[in-house]
């Protein structure tokens, strides 16, 4: 990641994985019971956060459906800071 030796871009902790249910109800993936209790699901969430590719998002959606029986869409959002106005917003990085 570079930058002051190691930081030069938004850290993976500035990326957030959201599960999107019916009627556009959203839940942070790391606030689910599965995240707390299932190491494999937790691993897939971290995978999406670090490398939000289509295939990783699909893998997470499939895993959630298999374990909870509910169909979800996955969205990965990143923080975005505009230093001139000191405003912080979020941008959609990828969705499935």
């Amino acid at each position: 990641m570079g930058g002051y030796g190691m930081y030069s871009d938004y850290h993976t902790e500035d990326y957030f994985v959201w599960l999107v249910f019916k009627k556009n109800k959203r839940l942070l993936a790391n606030h689910t019971e599965l995240f707390q209790n299932d190491p494999n699901f937790k691993n897939l969430v971290y995978q999406c956060r670090t490398f939000p590719s289509d295939s990783n998002l699909k893998e997470l959606a499939d895993d959630f459906k298999k374990k909870s029986g509910k169909k979800v869409n996955i969205e990965v959002w990143r923080l975005d800071f505009i230093s001139d106005s000191l405003k912080l917003k979020r941008v959609l990085v990828n969705d499935y």
Partner: peptide, 19 residues
Amino acid sequence: ATIHKLLNPHFVNGEFVGF
């Protein structure tokens, strides 16, 4: 690390350090 920073618009325009 230097090349990555130079190629990264978030870093070069000061947004990252500002954040």
